[in-house]
Every structure is written in C-alpha cells, then in structure tokens.
Design a protein around this nucleic acid. Structure first.
Length: 281
DNA sequence: ACTATTTCCTGGATGC
DNA sequence: TGCATCCAGGAAATAG
C-alpha cells in the first residue's frame, strides 16, 4: 500500500528528522521474514554509523550510512539479537554482534540500509520510553536519544544492507515519454501488470496503476503491446500527474503529525485512515 | 526472455 | 457471541 508517493512522503519526513544522527545500537526481532540480509550483517553495518542521507528509490527507502571514524574496536559482548522477546522492551542491546566475523560490507565506507515497507510496514521515530508496539522487528537507538523503529504486522516488509543498492527499473517521475513507451510497447501482458512490474517502472503499485489507467482511459487488461503511441503519451502524463498530486497531498497530511501520546509518530500518507491510523489533527 | 501462478503473513470483514 | 473462512496485496519463488 505504501507506493511511491507514500514512500516519498515518509522519506522526506525521515530525512528532515534524522539526517546526521548516529546509530548507537541495534535490536532485531527473532522473526526472520523481514530480514533480507543476515541479522548479524545488518546489525554490524548499522551500528556506529551516521545517517548521511535518506532517499527513495521506487518503493525502497535507502539510508546512506557513513561509518564512524572510530572503527570497531573489537567489542565482544555476546549478541542478544534474535533472543530478546519482542514484547519486552529491547533495552541494552548495544555492542551486539561485534567483531571478528564482521562481513565486508560492514567495513565498507559506503554502506546502505534498505527498507521496503511491504504492505503494512511503518517506521517510527519515538522517545525510548514509548511503548514498543506489537510486531516491532527492529529498534535503532540514535545518538540524539530517540529510537527509530520498524513495525510490520504482516511481515511483507524487508530490511537489508547493501554497498550499492540497485532498485531496478526507472523512476516514473524522471522517465521521458519515449523511454516510457519503449518500456511497454513489446509486452504481451496486460498493461496494468506491466505497470506493476518494478523491473520496468519502479514505484507504481495497485492504486496508482488503476488511477492513472482510468485517467488515461485505458482498460487495465488491455495488452500493453496493443496500446497506441498517443495512449502511451497520455498514460505517461497521467502517471506523473497522479503521483505528483499524491505526493502533494501526502506531504500536507503528514508533515506536522504528532500522535496522541505526544510521540513523533510516523504513519502513512493520504490513506492513513484505511490503515487504521489516526488522521492528523 | 517472458509470462502466469503460487506463496508468504495477520487482522479485519463476512457468513452461518 | 463465537468460530471458521475469506480477503488484501508487493514481490520473490516457482512453473510453464
């Protein structure tokens, strides 16, 4: 459900709040589905890194990390990652997984933390005393004293680390009309399926595919290869319009959001209601 | 190289 | 009210 505009909105909020902050320690839950890289690798890569930037690539959130100048100095504390009960407040996880077996990516200068929210994933920035929500899979303690948490009941979201992440596909807001058409003109699959294919265009999901096809007057099941040049042009601009309008809405509905507990809660964009989140006051 | 189908998940909705 | 079943839906895995 978070598609390009929602992710863009979330990324902007994150960037303004945590850019420059440092990750002091990491706690990861024991559920394995959300972890696309080994837990140890994620933890080692994130710990003691500075968040240099937060960007969006398609539906992925990319945290550009800078390794702290103080390189790991052979910590040894036994890792508790994956052993702490999710319901309990994950305190004191510092120094987990240190040391020798640190994978290469952990030492590389330009590591990235990649987050995909799936359908129900959320990133929250909250004070440490805020209650840990059910289905919390990761908690990053930041030098500023706040925590960045990843919550995802359905576990379709994914966390990973990378040295040079490639999201595949082309950004819908950057592609020119000609290239756009070339992406689809030879496809036999229904145009909607093609739009959902992240290897082609990245960031468009079910809702915005439907909406832009509707605006362009193209039936979703129409074979992509049968669509005319003119219709492709129309579809291209519909997609851009729809995404940009949604980003504008998402931005305005989320920017000053503070939830009832006074914590900086991070929720989704324009459709927060559908996802059971309180609408912004 | 493509395309179509299945699978993963939980909570909310629906049905009896 | 309670319990079973269905459904959502992105993308990886599997099959054709």
């Amino acid at each position: 459900m978070p598609e390009l505009p929602e992710v863009e909105t979330i990324v902007r909020g994150l960037a303004s709040r945590i850019t420059g902050d440092e990750i002091e320690s990491v706690w990861l839950g024991q559920k394995k589905e959300p972890l696309k890289s080994p837990a140890q690798e994620i933890a080692v890569t994130l710990e003691h890194s500075r968040i240099a930037a937060v960007r969006r690539m398609g539906k992925h959130i990319v945290f550009d990390l800078e390794r702290n100048s103080v390189e790991r100095r052979g910590l040894s504390a036994r890792g508790r990652i994956g052993q702490t009960a999710v319901r309990k407040k994950p305190e004191a996880i510092p120094q987990a997984w240190a040391g020798k077996s640190a994978p290469r990516s952990a030492n590389s200068a330009n590591a990235q933390w990649i987050v995909h929210l799936g359908m129900t994933g959320r990133l929250q920035i909250c004070p440490p005393e805020a209650e840990i929500e059910k289905h919390t899979h990761a908690v990053l303690k930041l030098a500023s004293g706040r925590e960045l948490r990843f919550v995802d009941p359905r576990r379709f979201g994914r966390l990973s680390v990378s040295a040079a992440f490639d999201a595949g596909g082309i950004e819908p807001l950057e592609v020119d009309p000609h290239r756009f058409m070339e992406l689809f003109r030879a496809r036999k699959t229904p145009i909607k399926s093609a739009l959902l294919n992240q290897e082609l265009l990245r960031g468009v999901g079910n809702i915005y595919a439907d909406e832009s096809l509707f605006r362009a007057g193209i039936r979703p099941r129409r074979r992509a290869a049968t669509i005319t040049r003119e219709q492709f042009a129309k579809l291209h601009s519909s997609i851009k319009d729809v995404l940009q309008e949604a980003i504008a809405l998402g931005g305005s509905s989320i920017s000053n959001y503070v939830d009832a507990d006074g914590e900086e809660g991070f929720f989704h964009g324009p459709r927060s209601r559908e996802w059971g989140c309180a609408p912004p006051g």
